[in-house]
Design a protein around this nucleic acid. Structure first.
Lengths: 241, 241
DNA sequence: GCGCCGCTTCGGCCGGGTCCGAAGCACGAG
DNA sequence: CTCGTGCTTCGGACCCGGCCGAAGCGGCGC
C-alpha cells in the first residue's frame, strides 16, 4: 500500500512540537505571517521557515503573498478535521479533567473563541445545548441534523441556510457536525451550520473578533440578542442572570 | 495550552512508519496479536513490542490477554476517526489518482473490505450511491441523514436502526457519516449506520470475512440479495450484468 | 516437570531530523 | 538608488528515537 508511508509522513508533520504549535494556532481559521507563527511555536524565524515549507509542500498549509508578507493558513477543512481528530484522541477518554487552569489569561478563550470556521467555548456549547433543547437540532457522536422546525427558527435568526446548503432545498437537514470542545469537553456545532452561525453572529455585530487572539467578545447588544434568541444560558461567563 | 504538547505526542505516535503500518492494519476493526502486527509493520517482534506498549499507554490501542496471546485493537472509534482524517489529508486533494495499481493482489480489497466497523471499497461506494439515488439517505461533506422513507427501506432489509439509535425513536435520522474511500476517492457510509449495514450483511450471510485480510467476499446468495435490494450497481467487480 | 513459544526488557549502535548562526534574496519605503 | 525588513537557504552540531541481538518472564502442551 502506498498510503501507509504517506500516512506516516503526514502524521509525522503534525508530530513535531513546533509544527503542532503552528497548526494549533491556525485552527482559528485566520492567516498568519511566518514571524507570528515562529513566535507562537517558540522557534527562530529560520527554523519556522523550514517547517512552513514542509507543511505547505505536503498540502497542509496554503500561502498567500501580500506585499512582503506571506500569510499562511490551513489549506482545507479536511486539515482542520484531521487536527480535531488528533486533539480528540490526545485529550484522552477522561470526561472530566477537573478545573485544570483558571488563569484569567485564557478566561476569554474559554468563554468564546473561533475553531477554524465556527464557534467554540462555553458560549458555543451553551448555544448547542439551547438548539438541542428547543428541538431545532439533533446531535449525535457521528453527526447532527437540523429539524424542519429548526430550519424556521434559524432562518428567523438570519442564518443563511441556503448558502450552507449548496445542493438545493431538498436536503437541508444535514450540514451539522459535532466538534468536541477542549475546554468544556462537550460537543458544540461545527460543520457548515457552525460556520453559518458564526458568520451570522459576526454580521449582526453580536460578536466581535479580538485582535491577535482566537477569542471573540460578546457585544452588549449581542448579549441581549443572544439571550433573547437562545435563553439565559447564553448570558455570561459566570451566569450573571 | 497543555494540549499542544499532547497533540504533537499523539501525532508523533502515528508518524512513525512502523506504528502507522500497525494502525492501518487495525483499521479493519479486528484484534491482532503482536507477532502479526510485527510482520505487518516489517519489524522484529521486540521492536513491535515497544511500539505497541507506547500506543497502548497513549490510549490508542486496547489489549485483551487470551492465553499466551495478546490481542491488540484500536481503543475507540475516535482513534479510527483520527486515522481516517489523517489518511484523507495524506491522500491529497487530487480527486483522480489515475489507475495507480491494478495488481490482482489487492483486487479483492478494492472490491469490498472493512474499514474499522463498516464497509469500504467499490461495493460500499455503490451501496452509498444507490441509497442516495433512491432518496433513502442524504450525504454531504459534513454529515449525512436517513430520510423517513429511508428508515422504512432499511428496516425492510433487516437493518437494526433501533440498535443504531440508542437515544430513542425521536432522532433516528442522524447516525450517518461520510468516509472518503482511499481506493475509489468517493464517499461511502460510515458511522453507526455504516456499522449496522455491515452487521446486517454479515448476519444475512451476504458477505463473508476473508481470513487474514481486510477483504470481504460476496456470497452467491448475497450477490442476488444485494442486486435485488440496491440495483445492478452492486452486481460485480467489473459489471457482470 | 520439562521444553516450546509468544512476548517483553535491556544495551548499544546508528541514522534522520531539528535547531540555530550567518549569509543571501525579494520587496517596499524614503 | 540605497537602506531596512521579512523571509529563505546553507552549513554544521546536537540529540532524540528506532532498530536489532541477547537474555528474562509467563503460559501451554506433551
Amino acid at each position: 500500500m502506498v498510503t501507509v508511508t504517506a500516512l506516516a509522513r503526514t502524521a509525522a508533520l503534525v508530530g513535531d512540537p513546533a509544527r503542532a504549535g503552528m497548526l494549533a494556532v491556525l485552527m482559528d481559521g485566520r492567516a498568519l505571517t511566518a514571524s507570528e507563527l515562529a513566535r507562537a511555536a517558540g522557534v527562530t524565524p529560520q527554523t519556522a521557515s523550514g517547517h512552513l515549507a514542509q507543511l505547505t509542500e505536503a498540502g497542509l498549509l496554503a500561502v498567500a503573498r501580500q506585499g512582503r508578507h506571506r500569510y499562511h493558513r490551513l489549506a482545507s477543512p479536511a486539515v482542520a478535521r484531521m487536527l480535531e481528530g488528533v486533539m480528540a484522541v490526545a485529550a484522552g477518554p477522561g470526561p472530566v479533567p477537573a478545573a485544570p487552569r483558571r488563569g484569567p489569561r485564557d478566561a476569554a478563550l474559554r468563554e468564546a473563541r473561533t475553531c477554524y470556521d465556527h464557534l467554540a467555548g462555553r458560549l458555543a456549547v451553551a448555544m448547542a445545548d439551547a438548539l438541542v433543547a428547543r428541538g431545532a437540532v439533533e446531535l449525535e457522536a457521528d453527526g447532527g441534523a437540523v429539524t424542519p422546525a429548526g430550519e424556521d427558527f434559524l432562518r428567523g435568526l438570519g442564518v443563511d441556510l441556503a448558502a450552507a446548503a449548496r445542493t438545493g432545498p431538498a436536503r437541508r437537514r444535514v450540514f451539522c457536525r459535532p466538534c468536541l470542545d477542549w475546554s468544556e469537553r462537550r460537543p458544540h456545532i461545527a460543520g457548515t451550520l457552525g460556520a453559518a452561525l458564526l458568520a451570522t453572529c459576526l454580521d449582526h455585530g453580536w460578536l466581535r473578533r479580538i485582535e491577535g487572539s482566537r477569542a471573540v467578545a460578546v457585544t452588549p447588544g449581542g448579549r441581549l440578542a443572544l439571550v433573547r434568541a437562545f435563553g439565559d444560558g447564553l448570558g455570561g461567563p459566570c451566569g450573571d442572570a
